[in-house]
Design a protein around this nucleic acid. Structure first.
Lengths: 117, 117
DNA sequence: ACACAACATAGACAAACGTCTATACAACCT
DNA sequence: AGGTTGTATAGACGTTTGTCTATGTTGTGT
């Protein structure tokens, strides 16, 4: 099914991303791979006070409240945001560690690309 | 359904990511939101010569050749990679512009976060 | 011209996803 | 205590996604 070792091109040195690490990172990318979640995350991450109340997120979309809640849950499970209840309301804030990891991965790609030229 | 204007918290200044821009960027994130595609992209982006032959990508997975081809198509449609046929073989290379845009977006999130503290 | 190899496309199908309604839980306020 | 509001969970349902097999397309070599 392939011609490895027949001179097509140099064999890959090594997969730069191991299977397990790819699985983990893909979860994070997938979480941002939906327009609603991306906007939600964007609103949370750029909240003026570093956090945003769910009561301000929900009415910003033409979607039901449970749907927004579901999307927030996925963002939380991906490690992109954290939530805290204060009294009646729940506040979400971003977790820059996760964002930074993604940015670093993308930057390393560009770096590899640059060093190869 | 909400208490906007009742003192829950400051209303959002503005969605930092417009609907259309979110839609567009989400497509790119979604493309990397699958473990197989993320590994494919990683292999392509870190290819020693800046490009990788499909014939080296396909046997690296326990998946059928059409499945790999399909994933490569999605990466291409997302603007993450480009393909070129040379003779019998097809070579894929990454498009750093797209990667850089994603990194910039993630970095701006961190920046907003830092300036808010 | 013909056979063969690399890659892409088409169609089918189960699994995952995004959305909804209904309901539960938690906190506030008379 | 009881009613009301904010948020989460449960279950249902149509759509999208990831995978496969079968086939088409493009280039090579004899």
């Amino acid at each position: 099914m392939s011609n490895q070792g027949q001179g097509c091109c140099a064999p890959l040195s090594e997969e730069p991303l191991a299977k397990e690490q790819a699985e983990e990172m893909a979860t994070v990318f997938k979480a941002l791979g939906d327009p609603v979640r991306l906007r939600l995350f964007s609103m949370i991450a750029s909240g003026p006070s570093g956090e945003v109340c769910v009561c301000d997120l929900t009415p910003a979309f033409d979607l039901s409240q449970p749907t927004i809640s579901h999307h927030l849950k996925l963002l939380r499970q991906a490690g992109l945001v954290d939530s805290e209840r204060r009294g009646t309301w729940v506040y979400y804030r971003s977790r820059p560690e996760t964002t930074d990891r993604m940015a670093a991965l993308l930057a390393s790609v560009s770096a590899d690309r640059a060093s190869a030229s």
